[in-house]
Amino acid sequence: MKTTTKQKIAFSILFLCTIIVVLPVLFVLGVIIKNGAKGISWQFLTTMPSDGMRQGGIYPAIVGTLYLVSLSIVFSLPVGVMAAIYLNEYAKDNLLTRLIRLAIVNLAGVSSVVYGLFGLALFVTFMKFGVSILSGALTLAIMNLPVIITASREALASVPYSFREVSLSLGLSRWQTIRHSVLPFAIPGILTGAILSLARAAGETAPILFTVAAFYLPNLPVSVFDQAMALPYHLYIISTQIPNISIQTRYATAFVLVGIVFTMNIIAVILRSRLRKKKKW
């Protein structure tokens, strides 16, 4: 066979494989939009569920997820950014740095349900926070740390080394240099990473199963020590635990969850592409 024919066949196979990856994405989104969009109404988004979740809306689940996600970023962002600063600006190439890097790789790889167990053992039981928003948010925060560290580190590394040299050569201290001539230029990249991590946290179910999630609550949570309903967990229970729920309600819930996650992703992507265009160095 001629080599060019071979190449044609090979490339066609590669293309087919790519289609196999991309088609399911379109399919999943198509199914959710087609079946879920018509279930969305203002009332669905803003009322409490009733009749054992079969009627009413998903308001408390949305609110619970927003609480969880915002509280988790409060913990993970400062620690994550400072860890990235340490790795990128202070760390030398030694054993400790290698250990940190390995630890991050591992944190990123730990199963989400194992995070759930960990949160249960440490926050709920040992620290006596109980099954609460605080426990869930802390669990999600640790889980998201690798994402934030990695993204922030990339953002810091993309600031030209010369900015640091200039600042140091003018007699500024190391921290002043980082604070004034590195961080300001890394902020958009760090934000992008933070938003992506938020999106991920919003969709996670296993880590919140035993740390915060409630099957049903008649009232919205009022403190961080309360349990909360959460959107992904809500989708799980209405699609596996409660019979006779209209399929449209399930799809609409999935639609809202995917909608929240994708909106955050899109914001992050837009931020990233604008950052690339605006880059002034």
Partner: peptide, 24 residues
């Protein structure tokens, strides 16, 4: 476009994929 599609796949929460798996 393909990269965006793959990023989207990564972004879909596991519980949603489970749900779609159940229904289709």
């Amino acid at each position: 476009i393909l990269k965006t599609g793959i990023e989207m796949l990564a972004a879909i929460p596991s519980v949603v994929l489970g749900f779609i798996g159940m229904t289709t």
